[in-house]
Design a protein around this nucleic acid. Sequence first.
DNA 1: AGCGTCACAGCAAGCGCTTTCTATGTCATA
DNA 2: TATGACATAGAAAGCGCTTGCTGTGACGCT
Lengths: 348, 348
Amino acid sequence: MTVTLADVAARAQVSPATVSRVLNGNYPVAATTRERVLRAVDELDYVLNGPASALAAATSDLVGILVNDIADPFFGIMASAIQSEIGGPGGRAGGERLAVVCNTGGSPERELTYLTLLQRQRAAAVVLTGGAVEDAPHAAAVASKLRKLADAGTKVVLCGRPPAPDTGAIALTFDNRGGGRELTEHLIGLGHRRLGYIAGPEERTTTRHRLEGHRAALEAHGIEEDARWTVYGRYDRQSGYEATLELLRRDPSLTAVVAANDSVALGACAALRDSGLRIPDDVSVAGFDDLPFSIDAVPSLTTVRLPLAEAGARAGRIAMGREEAPPGGIATIRGELMVRGSSGGPRG
Amino acid sequence: MTVTLADVAARAQVSPATVSRVLNGNYPVAATTRERVLRAVDELDYVLNGPASALAAATSDLVGILVNDIADPFFGIMASAIQSEIGGPGGRAGGERLAVVCNTGGSPERELTYLTLLQRQRAAAVVLTGGAVEDAPHAAAVASKLRKLADAGTKVVLCGRPPAPDTGAIALTFDNRGGGRELTEHLIGLGHRRLGYIAGPEERTTTRHRLEGHRAALEAHGIEEDARWTVYGRYDRQSGYEATLELLRRDPSLTAVVAANDSVALGACAALRDSGLRIPDDVSVAGFDDLPFSIDAVPSLTTVRLPLAEAGARAGRIAMGREEAPPGGIATIRGELMVRGSSGGPRG
DNA sequence: AGCGTCACAGCAAGCGCTTTCTATGTCATA
DNA sequence: TATGACATAGAAAGCGCTTGCTGTGACGCT
């Protein structure tokens, strides 16, 4: 039924070995023979059997990309960049690799299961994007999995994720703390003294780091934080909306709201508007990430730009061995403060 | 070095066959034996060799999802929904399947290459999302590929894509024409008579269908279209920005701008604002898709909501054989007009 | 008591490919 | 002309798993 290497070999009047060599192009084959084989391949419409070849060669051309939420452009942009460097079809790299994007939905179990699945497929490389969960047992489980992958020859790269010591994984980490600090300092510089903070899910490293930066800025300027000023939520618009209403309820005198990311910030803007407050006249708003839509908000969003595409591309190249790993296997990528219309001096 | 089935078998004092059966659970194995095997698996930290198993069983648990642009939430949302039904880790389905998202970047060649790669991996199913390219040779090549995939037992589902006759592919198509028409009729109903249209890439089916709907509405209301009122571009914000400036240059008296999708519409809004025009007082704007950010635009965007998540979920279920295919293998999914702040009566 | 049934477990034959090693013909060199 | 050296091609041994078929006791039945 299905055409095999042997069929091609028969048709081209050569041995299967020769066909394999033509297809893999890593062994001298006379031009005329090669052409004959290629013609047979074409005529029979032969397609290599991936599993068989992976089994025999003990390698695979699968590259896994783990993301928390594929519907979120934050991850989409990174995944896209990673993939373009993986050299899937059309990429620069020679060999065709199948870049597979796996959506963990932020669930630790799924993350682990996907890693196992990739291990099972003997993936050539794995790139994990986005923050990690701080749950100790899970972190240990992931670390052990990563070590096993690395030991089995799979290249492991973390993109926008804190380093995983002793796992052999290369880490490109975002400086969430520094960005958070810079952002809040900008607001403080404008004169704000009462700032609400809408954090992401409490157990995520990204959440904690950004919040730490925010608090560091407050502290550096002698602003004592009110416990009511922080609300935890999810990394989405709705969460931002609800959290903002909650903040307003807790302390209507807030003059600025700092959000965990841009989506949350947009939700915050909507809530403020719905509460009859003007941005930035009454309340300033700041986001994080600088996703494409942030510039289209009205007023456009003050935020911290993370070079997602660049980081992804670099992660992809490292995963493919086309770029050297940073010294120590760890690189910190800084964000850039983007001051736009959503932030201004406090009212009055 | 690496642990194999045989190692587990030796440790559990059973034959490899038994271990395989325990792992696949499709053959009676005594409870005590099973437990012994499972313990050995655990102790040895055994991970099945995917390629070997796929080769021997002549099936794979890979499911491919093709998207045009993974950084675009339009595709991200569908991919996410498809994947959740595929039953990757955490999904409802029992068997663990690896859902792989492939980013074609809208390139026909890449699309074809990815299909071949998936064919090579003997994918269990393939879901193609988004519009197709209208280039005849390419369409034929894709159709032939789809037929081969279907013949080889791979389930092929099109989600948000026009049907591919005689390929055995199930199609869930968006009613882009109907949506486009409804949208423009809404604007005409408001009193607009001079409407600019910012189309997507000319060679895409989605572009053509939406534009056809727009024109049908114009015609139905006896509005003669000016050739200057249509500009082609890409499906992104920047394209919308530039196209709007171009439209304004060509005919400053336009009172409404209809965009190929929401991202383009946002770009249009930005261009209008930068040109000193108010929305909708001076010019109304309409988008398409109703992506999450559209409601956050100021004013919020009038658009056509496409049930991306629902369609994706359905496509996923069909691909898994957990839902029956629609009669005739084709279902048309309608959009819903969402009237919001960006559209109003023409000035004056 | 004799024998068919049933529930398990093992044997062994591949699945379709890669790759090492070996064979063969062709040259250039001595 | 004899002889390496070299360029190619083939034979064959797996890669690690699945599965059809073949045992083999333990049971229940007449």
